[in-house]
């Protein structure tokens, strides 16, 4: 008995050293200013002001790399980020201690296997408003707002980007150089996503297809580690 106890106590520091949390925070900005929902912002000095009402998206398959090689792969790596709930934009990565990394890789969206795996829980629970109901599949990225040029009711625009079947599989992989620190800050610059969007013609994407695919290519440009 005493032996078992000693053994367990002996193991405890091992367990606690074995793991080390890194915190990842996603910050959402327009021209390096914090994005505030339901308030006016300008995408470019010449453009009309835009109001963002919803920004929700999935970050998945997070990996850390050192000199081009994967040194850490998060398990069950699916995070729903909703800027309405700031807590959802910061989360820990349970990594081994003393891990060295200089790059981070992640996807925007949900992979095709998870899309065909039935009902899932946690951030993938279909009650979270990121699952289509009229046909199966996750919405990877949801951006909604108001732009005066939108020829729609109340000038609203909605971009619900998703799909899991080739050739329209808009899962986008992002690779960023990051400092080897315990706190990783990633900035999403929304003006890069919305640059050159013609709101007169593009006001809504609600189904998987070529348009969603083209829109998703913008994701690769919008993340950076520079504030």
């Amino acid at each position: 008995m005493r032996f078992i106890l000693c053994f367990l106590i002996g193991c405890m520091p091992l367990c606690s050293v074995a793991q080390n949390d890194i915190s990842i925070s996603f910050h959402h900005q327009i021209h390096h200013q914090k994005l505030i929902l339901n308030e006016r912002s300008r995408i470019s000095p010449q453009s009309d002001s835009v109001i963002i009402t919803t920004l929700k998206y999935y970050i998945s398959s997070i990996q850390l790399l050192w000199q081009g090689k994967t040194v850490f792969r998060e398990s069950n790596s699916h995070h729903l980020l909703n800027i309405e709930e700031s807590k959802s934009c910061t989360f820990p990565l349970h990594t081994p201690k003393n891990i060295h990394f200089d790059q981070m890789e992640f996807c925007v969206g949900i992979d095709s296997i998870s899309n065909v795996s039935g009902a899932l829980g946690g951030d993938l629970d279909p009650t979270l408003g990121m699952y289509w109901t009229w046909q199966s599949g996750y919405i990877n990225f949801k951006l909604e707002g108001i732009h005066p040029k939108c020829p729609s009711r109340k000038n609203e625009f909605q971009f619900h980007i998703g799909g899991y079947q080739m050739p329209y599989y808009p899962l986008q992989e992002i690779k960023l150089s990051i400092p080897n620190k315990k706190q990783i800050d990633i900035y999403l610059q929304l003006e890069k996503l919305m640059a050159n969007l013609d709101f007169k013609t593009q006001k809504s994407i609600m189904i998987p297809g070529k348009e969603a695919m083209d829109f998703s290519k913008r994701f690769t440009q919008m993340f950076s580690t520079a504030q």
Binding site: N115, V116, G118, A119, P126, Y131, W134, Q135, S136
Partner: peptide, 8 residues
């Protein structure tokens, strides 16, 4: 066939 899994 729009639904890909019985759960959904």
């Amino acid at each position: 066939g729009r639904i890909n899994h019985l759960d959904m």
